[in-house]
């Protein structure tokens, strides 16, 4: 299991479209992937879960990957965050 912190840069927060991008990306991996914000935690493979975290711009998020492809998953997810999910 690995953990890494990332900050969301999308002005409008992690709303439906970027959240759906994150789900699509996460579903590519076998690992269990979770997002942790403060005390709340949700699966990165559930759009409702992600949206229910209500992540706003400049929020620090901890990504937790656990599984055989955890390192690739982490790298790609961090990259997606840094690219603002293509927005």
């Amino acid at each position: 299991m690995i953990r890494q912190k990332v900050t969301l840069k999308n002005e409008t927060g992690l709303h439906a479209r970027p959240a759906s991008e994150l789900v699509k990306l996460s579903n590519k991996f076998k690992s269990n992937i979770e997002l942790e914000v403060g005390e709340k935690k949700a699966s990165a493979k559930s759009i409702l879960g992600i949206m229910s975290l209500g992540i706003k711009v400049n929020t620090e998020i901890e990504i937790i990957c656990d599984g055989e492809d955890e390192q690739t998953a982490m790298n790609e997810i961090i990259e997606a965050f840094n690219n603002n999910f293509g927005e």
Binding site: A16, R17, A19, S20, V23, S46, I47, L48, G49, M51
Partner: peptide, 16 residues
């Protein structure tokens, strides 16, 4: 399309 795809994904999310 992007918006509706996200909407569809919400519908397909088992937690819904």
């Amino acid at each position: 399309l992007d918006i509706m795809q996200a909407y569809l994904m919400i519908m397909q999310d088992p937690s819904l």
